[in-house]
């Protein structure tokens, strides 16, 4: 297979774009897609400080690499979830990445903040692990950004993540998540930091290829709690569709963002308050994170 741009040997075929690229041209394509996402959704400027939530996986480290190479002021934030060897290995990958590039990295321990590491949170609260983990991540990334004065939080969510989330919301017609799903969520409260997803135009295959070609040492093993997650089933279904009809995921997500989301947004407005205990933003009186920490405390 030949590179569509230079005619050299291709390393990756992009069927949804009906093209193939050699390594240097693919890296350029990848960075151009991130630049297009940042520009189109006015995610951030080179003058702003960006907090990149890094997990040690391919997506977040690829994102951090693109931003650093692009001259952005990008600091990494690693949340130590305390998930056995998986967390130890992923933390080491993030530290090694930061050290090699002399990039700043912040670390927050979930155990210190919630009162227990993620496996114990699950045992204490009986909440599904991914739900307690997702809640803690959203809360702690926002808090770290506020505490350290960052203008925006960037996450490594890719096209496949976004398409799978969309499928999950559509299957249950969850109108609130549909209203909120966007590559860029602006700040709707002084204590809510803007959240952006600069990789939403790139598939999982593309972020993995970018990380590999850039020599990024990322954690290939999966979180032990992800096994059997519904989001994986949704991804599998979408990948079958994609195989039969290249561009299916892309059309599903982009079509939603362009045509359907505005309609959900109009009905999805909610009133935001400050949590009576911690002062972070919530729709109720006590925020979900404080309720989770209470559950953990009661169970101990």
């Amino acid at each position: 297979m030949k590179c569509r741009k230079c005619g050299g040997a291709a390393v990756l075929e992009l069927r949804r774009h009906n093209t193939a690229f050699c390594a240097p041209d693919f890296v350029e394509f990848f960075r151009r897609q991130v630049a297009e996402a940042v520009k189109r959704h006015r995610m951030f400027t080179r003058e702003e400080s960006v907090l990149v939530a890094v997990s040690g996986g391919k997506d977040s480290l690829a994102l951090w690499d693109v931003l650093l190479e692009g001259g952005y002021k990008a600091t990494g934030l690693y949340l130590d979830l305390g998930i056995y060897d998986y967390s130890k290995e992923s933390k080491a990958k993030c530290k090694a990445f930061a050290a090699a590039r002399e990039a700043p990295l912040l670390t927050v321990s979930v155990e210190e903040e919630v009162g227990a590491a993620i496996p114990e949170v699950h045992a204490a609260t009986r909440r599904p692990t991914c739900s307690a983990c997702g809640l803690s991540k959203r809360y702690l990334t926002n808090k770290a950004a506020l505490d350290h004065g960052f203008a925006v939080v960037a996450t490594g969510h890719n096209l496949d993540d976004e398409a799978a989330t969309l499928l999950g919301s559509v299957l249950h017609w969850q109108t609130e998540p549909l209203a909120r799903q966007s590559p860029s969520l602006g700040s709707t409260h002084p204590k809510l930091v803007r959240r952006v997803k600069p990789l939403y135009r790139l598939s999982e295959l593309e972020t993995a290829a970018y990380a590999f070609l850039r020599g990024i040492d990322y954690i290939v093993e999966e979180c032990p709690f992800a096994k059997g997650a519904t989001s994986l089933l949704h991804k599998e279904i979408l990948n079958r569709l994609e195989e039969a009809s290249p561009g299916a995921k892309h059309n599903f997500l982009y079509g939603f963002l362009e045509k359907a989301r505005p309609a959900f947004e109009r009905v999805g407005e909610v009133e935001l308050n400050e949590c009576a205990r911690c002062g972070q933003v919530t729709t109720g009186t006590l925020c979900g994170f404080c309720k989770l920490a209470d559950q953990v405390k009661r169970a101990r």
């Binding site: 991914c130 739900s131 993995a208 989001s231 991804k235």
Partner: peptide, 21 residues
């Protein structure tokens, strides 16, 4: 379309990440 042969050592690395992130 690449051809792999007897003496090759190949890694087939999944790209799918799971769970709520």
């Amino acid at each position: 379309d690449a051809i792999v042969g007897e003496d090759d050592e190949i890694e087939v690395r999944p790209v799918i990440s799971g769970g709520a992130r």
